[in-house]
Design a protein around this nucleic acid. Structure first.
Lengths: 345, 345
DNA sequence: CTGAAAGCGCTTACAG
DNA sequence: CTGAAAGCGCTTACAG
């Protein structure tokens, strides 16, 4: 029924291993005319190599895992920004002749199981916390290369590809400062002293320092990276910080919620409060006002992540330094020069 | 290095096949105490079955393909609505002990190759045209069950799970009609006489008929299902249809663009033109005005799709009738009673 | 309740 | 340039 190497070999009058050599492009071991004949028969019979058999025999699967956090029994928890990355990763893997296994992981202990059950040649970790990456041990990864996207963990078991979060935050903040803002709220999920959010916090503060603005005037407000939490924060923002004129949110989805919350209580954006986000999601250009934000290089992130991982999987060199991708400020309509307020007079 | 059945068997003092029987839950063939002992050793040694070996020997992979259209060398073309489905499909497969292979397909001929290269137990087709589903032949699917989401093709090789597009369109249109609208534009991508868009067209017209409104007054405007095309349509809408007071768009992303296009030329929504979408994307509640739309049952669609497919894969009965999921009208702020216009006086 | 043996479809040294 | 043979880690009748 299924066409196998044996069928091709019989039809071509050669051994199985010669066919195998042709399939795998080891043409130095086969005469040109044999290659030609075998190829023709392969096409005629519609032969498709059996990935499982290949994987079992060669101990290499040409299968890469894309591992994403998911509470058990719950859907994958992928941020809008990361969703765009999934498609790009698939594209790049396909170009390079690999397949993608997408899998939700509810506990980092499952990572090892995921890697081994399909003899994955490598795995991309998308959306995990740095603490989780830190905890990865050799006994779970084995010899399988693992790459973490957007991680600041220095776990030597993983390579990293991430955005230049520090510069992104610096750009966003400097944009507000150069418009004249002096009281800027930093809106972010709770963070520790390592990771994406912390890095954006450092960039935020560095920009304040560079401009000679007191960090005292620029407090942090904590909110989960969701639209709902943004709305809630937007509604209470001016009650908590009456003299604030701007907000830098560490994610567009949060910024969009904040704008809605401000709008709900009649605060005009950007006239009374300017808002800057981070990510440059598609929807950030659809809302009113269109969001000023920091654009990440999604295609670059996905492409380089795959390329680095496959370099490792194919026995290339291990990059110890993470790859850091450039960011770009996109100025739209959610930021403006601050109005003089009563208290400033 | 890797722990295999053989290692477990040796440690437990039983044969490989006894261990295999324990792993696979065939407990009627093994004594309770043996089951217990083997299980303990499996846990101790951290045994993980080798999917490839299993697949090869059993001719069943517990691997399901999620096939999505993609121009070659280009990223997956997944609509925002379908993206939400991907995560839900993964969740349901994981619950049922299967793994997901995500793969872009640039030509339907690749579907067969995708199915066979990993001996997939089944595949979900997401985002393909009905013409493409129609063209599927036994020689590409083989014996592998294939399920098409949102297809109206009656290809017996596939089962279907889809939304009640007719009713959805009827609801949306009736909502506009009951508010008093009599000149409604149907905005949709170009469509043939079968498929999702056609079905929504039928629902649209049925609602007009039920209300005794002339279809002459309710023309169709063609636009791709993208934000940009929506903007473009919004800008020229009233030039082409000066007396129109409402638009029913077959997708939220298109509706959102139309609202922006109308806004660009100073047409207030919903005061001058009401807009209804279809999908109920998250972002539809974030824009201004919040979009009135038809909500699809994403969780249900994904869950039932997986369940039907696995029923087939596991030798259950073949559902010849597609499963049709309920829709729900979500009334928000993009629709209102039409203003009397000058020409109506 | 338990096991020896064949076989799934490949790849990989090894030999010629 | 070509091939015979072993083996990857499982499952599946079959026999006892």
């Amino acid at each position: 029924m299924r066409v196998t190497l044996k069928d091709i070999a019989r039809a071509a009058g050669v051994s199985i291993m010669t066919v195998s050599n042709v399939i795998n492009g080891k043409h130095d071991r086969v005469s040109a005319e044999t290659v030609e004949r075998v190829r023709r028969i392969v096409a005629e019979l519609g032969y498709v190599p059996n990935g499982s058999a290949r994987s079992l025999a060669a101990n290499s699967s040409r299968l890469i895992g894309l591992l994403v956090p998911a509470e058990s029994e719950v859907s994958l928890t992928i941020s809008p920004h990361n969703i765009a990355i999934v498609g790009q990763i698939e594209r790049r893997l396909r170009q390079r002749g690999y397949h993608l296994l997408l899998r939700g992981v509810s506990d980092t202990a499952e990572i090892g199981e995921a890697l081994r059950s399909w003899s994955l040649d490598g795995a991309v970790l998308l959306g995990f916390l740095d603490e989780e990456i830190d905890r990865l041990r050799r006994r779970v990864t084995g010899a399988t290369p693992v790459l973490a996207i957007d991680s600041y963990s220095d776990n030597p078991l993983t390579t990293g590809v991430r955005t230049d979060d520090f510069t992104g935050a610096h750009l966003a903040t400097s944009h507000l400062l150069s418009s004249g803002h002096r009281r800027i709220v930093f809106a972010a999920p709770s963070f520790t002293d390592v990771g994406v959010v912390h890095e954006r916090f450092l960039g935020f503060h560095a920009a304040l320092r560079d401009a000679g603005v007191s960090p005292q005037d620029c407090p942090t407000e904590t909110a989960n990276t969701t639209h709902d939490d943004g709305v809630e924060l937007g509604r209470r923002l001016l009650a908590s910080h009456p003299r604030a004129t701007a907000v830098f949110a560490t994610a567009d989805i949060l910024a969009i919620g904040i704008i809605e919350g401000l709008h709900d209580i009649g605060v005009p954006v950007p006239e009374r409060v300017s808002v800057v986000g981070f990510d440059d999601l598609d929807i950030s250009a659809y809302i009113t006002p269109k969001l000023t934000t920091v654009a990440q290089d999604i295609v670059g992130k996905a492409t380089h992540a795959v390329d680095r991982l496959l370099d490792l999987a194919e026995g290339g060199n291990h990059h110890t330094e993470p790859l850091v991708l450039d960011v770009r400020l996109v100025v739209r309509n959610s930021t403006a020069v601050p109005q003089p307020t009563a208290t400033d007079n």
